[in-house]
Each structure stands twice: as structure tokens, then as C-alpha cells.
Amino acid sequence: MKGYKIIVLAKQVPDTRNVGKDAMKANGTVNRAALPAIFNPEDLNALEQALRLKDRYPGTTVTLLTMGPGRAADIIREGLFRGADDGYLITDRKFAGSDTLATSYAISLAAKKLMPFDLIMCGRQAIDGDTAQVGPQVAEKIDIPQITYAEEIEKIEKGKITIKRRLERGVETVECPMPLLITVHGSAPDCRARNAKYLLRYKHAKTWTEMQQDTEDYLWLREDRPYLDIREWSVDDLSADETFLGLSGSPTKVKKVFNVVFTAKEAKVLGDTDAEMDDLMKELIENHNIG
């Protein structure tokens, strides 16, 4: 059996889930730099689904595709450590300021360069924006079907894939011919841990830019081990039309942002003693807030 060719889209995101005290500036805004950069959680769920298909259907390959600044190569290394086969980093200053539409344009060009493929998989949404837009927009640009919110891939048979989807108030099982794009829901199983063997094998996997800082020995090493290359794609490599990229390719503009100013209501501050609690409850009952 020949297996399937799977592309996994992954994003490096600031960890907005637990904005601790140390990440707050004195004026109450968040200090982004203090937030650790992580593998977007639902993209890890997507990677796990791809790796399960690889376990199940011998000959299957998993290629990671990420877009971001140079340090986003960490995402590819992380994927390699967990069992992916190779990865590409889409990186160029000209992508800066891209909204979801411009981002999906760049990713769709990269995916087209990797054609023919059977599946593109990605997380439902990224935690820094929660828009859930890039997956469907990439699918539209490549003109393939999309199945969103996948929780379980049941099987692939005769070129068709059967997927269980998690909806707001229920589940749905659908069958779709390949190729297609699947977005994976966070309720799908967690991603497996790093594998010690792959950790050794890919420890020195780097992008060309990162290699510039390498010493001679490593350059030698790389010559016999081509799998250590993380390829970088720029606007030129993708033959992208610049009018569809960055700020100019982004129809949405941020008009203004403002810090929320609390209209402090002058909360009545209470301790947790029996007397204070009894008084509060008494007041709430008397004022018909409760009861």
C-alpha cells in the first residue's frame, strides 16, 4: 500500500491561556514578550490525528507547514520530535501584518507547491485569535472540501475518509472523498509526547538561516543528513502576488484599540467571616436578588 501524503498546518502562538501575574504590566495590559511561545494546542490535536493515520497506513508521510518569523522553526522541530517526516517554514517580512485572508493565501500557495497531497489537517483555531478562519479559507483557495471540528477519523477506504465531527450540541459522522482539508477539535485525543529516537535524530534540524550560525562540524553533518534541513519559503519561492499579502492583502484593518477602563462600581469589599456572609445573604434575600 502506498500510504497517504498529509500536510499539517501548525502555528506558533503566545500562551494566552494562563496569563499569570508576571505577564501583566503595571498599567494592567499584557506584556506579550513575557508569554511563552507554544505550539497552538489544537494544531497538536491535528498532528496526533495525522500521526495515527501514519501508524495505521504504512507509507504515509506527515509534512508540517508553518508560517511565522524565524523562531517558528521550533514548531517544525517539535513536530519532527513527535513523529512528523519533514517541514517547511513560510517566512518573509512581507507577510507581516497579514490578516486571516492574506495568511490563508500564503499557506494555500505553499500547500499547492506540495501537491499532490491527500489531506491537509490543522487545528480548529489558534488561541491567540480564536477566529477559526484560516482552515476554511485555505480549503476554499485550493478548491477542496473542508470538514471542520473533527474529533475522530474512523477510516479511509477507496479514496474516501470517514470523520466524526464535534458540533456545538452534538456529533455528526460524514464521508468525504480526498483530497480535503480537516480542522481538528480540541476534544480529539492529545498529541503523543516526543519520541527519544526522533529527538536524537532531529536534534540538529535547522533552517538555512539558523545554519548560518553553525560551526563547521555541523555543516559537514548536514551534508550526509539531508533530513536535517528545514526548508524556508519566501514570497519569491511561493511566486506570491504581493498585493494579496501583508497589510495590503488584508481587507480587515484595525481602526483603533483601547484599553478597557473600568467604570469602577466601588465594590463593597467583604471578608469571608460567618457574620459578613450572613449579612450579605440576608440583604440579597431582602432585596429579592435571590429567593
Partner: peptide
């Protein structure tokens, strides 16, 4: 911004090349 709207709206925004703001 439901299972349906969040699946459909981005696909349309992409086809029409127009901006979409979520939530």
C-alpha cells in the same frame, strides 16, 4: 458564530476576497 456560521463565513469571505471579523 456557531458551528455552522464559523464553518461557512470564512469560506465565503475567501471566495469573495473580503474581510471577516469573528466573535
Amino acid at each position: 458564530a456557531t458551528s455552522i456560521g464559523r464553518d461557512l463565513a470564512p469560506r465565503i469571505a475567501s471566495a469573495l476576497k473580503c474581510g471577516l471579523t469573528a466573535d
